[in-house]
Computed example of a mutant assay.
Amino acid sequence: MDLALPPPDQVILATGAGLVSILKPLFPDATVVTDLSQLDTVLKSSGQRSIRLISVGFGHIIPAWMLDLCSAGAINFHPATPDYPGSASNHLALYEGAQRFGVTAHITTAAVDAGPILAVRYFDIPPGIGHRSLDELTFPCLLSLVGELAPCFYGHRPFPPRPSQSWRGPARRRSDILLLAQITPDMPPTEQRRRWQAFHEGPDSILTYTQAGHRQPYSAGGRTRGWVDGIIGNSIHGWAYDPGRPPVTVRIEVDGRPFRNLLADEYRGDVAAAGQGDGLCGFSIKTSDLPTGAERIDFLIPSDEWCRIPGAPLTLPA
């Protein structure tokens, strides 16, 4: 696209319904659409006018034939840096341990997040945050870039010099993200932690736990109750219960290092009698299954971080 194009006859702002009141002041003369049906109607009634389409948080892939009707070009604001094209960029950035994130303005093409890049803005990612917290940092960065470039879309001032960044690989699809949002008991603890960090935050988390072919929502933290009973016979016993998403995953650490994750799904009649669900919330591990020489055994449950279950840690007898 030639960024020296004359001002368009009409600007169309394609955005989500919840963003209209926020973005409209930046595009006071724009025609606002919030779905593809509305966009179709506006484009077909535009006649010979020169159209420029701006999409911000639109949530729909715009077909090639619609883009062809935008003779003054189409521009999208992607809520991530060029390192993360496609869906769920915030999750991927956290999974990869990225130290900075941001937003990208680019020419919209039929291929998702593949058009020439117009501008990129970055910010540092605070350590330990989840994907919802990252979204809260991304949104003001996005609005700032939209406001910065809005006069360019009307031809009131030239576009800034094109940056040197390019897209990193093809756009990720939601199916790719769902595969990544799974934890299995045979994963190394470091990999489980990466996926937990990328997907766990909030009650709408898509993180799942798969065991013996059965896939279920991973327990969300903040509501989990439990207790480590101690060593009974040759095993350590305890329970953990989340009223919203049973069963709970319990993480065992030995002498400060992750050792194993257990699913708290053993029946505990005493816990059920105390009103904690159906009682399928117990866990146990034989002391003989612990590493030789183990001294301090900790039991953790997922919250914003891994939190210790009351009654832990235990010190094994010499």
Rank of each mutant, 00 (worst) to 15 (best):
212 A>F: 01
304 D>N: 08
309 I>Y: 06
91 H>M: 07
185 P>M: 04
252 I>M: 06
301 I>A: 11
85 P>N: 14
55 S>Y: 07
294 A>L: 10
105 A>V: 04
158 P>I: 03
239 W>F: 01
150 A>K: 03
236 I>N: 07
39 L>E: 13
156 H>F: 13
62 I>R: 10
7 P>I: 00
171 A>H: 07
130 G>K: 08
51 I>C: 04
93 A>N: 11
67 L>P: 01
243 P>M: 00
93 A>T: 10
284 S>V: 00
25 P>R: 04
53 L>W: 10
240 A>I: 03
312 A>Q: 08
253 E>R: 14
30 A>W: 02
130 G>E: 12
59 G>E: 09
3 L>Y: 06
119 A>H: 11
97 G>R: 09
273 A>C: 09
120 V>G: 06
19 L>A: 14
75 I>G: 03
58 F>S: 11
174 R>A: 10
27 F>I: 02
133 S>C: 02
241 Y>V: 00
84 Y>L: 04
75 I>L: 09
90 N>L: 04
283 F>G: 09
102 G>H: 02
301 I>L: 07
154 Y>T: 08
120 V>S: 03
143 L>R: 13
187 M>E: 10
219 S>L: 02
252 I>C: 07
157 R>W: 00
28 P>R: 08
316 L>W: 12
139 F>V: 10
82 P>I: 01
302 P>T: 12
194 R>H: 10
120 V>M: 07
199 F>N: 13
292 T>W: 05
296 R>M: 05
195 R>K: 05
60 H>S: 13
293 G>R: 12
161 P>I: 01
261 N>V: 07
229 D>S: 11
78 H>C: 03
60 H>W: 12
95 Y>W: 14
90 N>V: 01
223 R>P: 00
246 P>S: 06
235 S>R: 14
178 L>Q: 15
218 Y>L: 11
168 R>H: 15
43 L>W: 10
256 G>T: 05
111 A>V: 10
54 I>A: 08
266 E>S: 03
46 S>V: 00
110 A>W: 01
132 R>Y: 03
176 D>V: 04
307 C>P: 00
82 P>S: 10
172 R>T: 11
41 T>S: 13
114 A>C: 08
52 R>E: 04
69 L>T: 05
207 L>K: 08
109 T>G: 11
128 G>Y: 07
229 D>W: 09
284 S>Q: 15
238 G>V: 03
167 W>N: 06
122 Y>C: 02
213 G>S: 09
8 P>C: 02
21 S>A: 15
248 V>L: 05
301 I>V: 15
58 F>Y: 15
13 L>M: 10
19 L>R: 14
185 P>F: 02
21 S>K: 15
192 Q>E: 10
42 V>D: 05
118 L>I: 15
110 A>K: 13
98 A>W: 07
7 P>D: 06
62 I>W: 09
212 A>T: 06
93 A>Q: 07
213 G>E: 13
100 R>C: 06
303 S>H: 12
206 I>K: 05
247 P>S: 06
227 W>A: 06
253 E>W: 06
69 L>V: 00
257 R>G: 00
86 G>W: 06
159 F>H: 14
240 A>N: 05
282 G>T: 12
70 C>P: 02
59 G>R: 14
185 P>H: 08
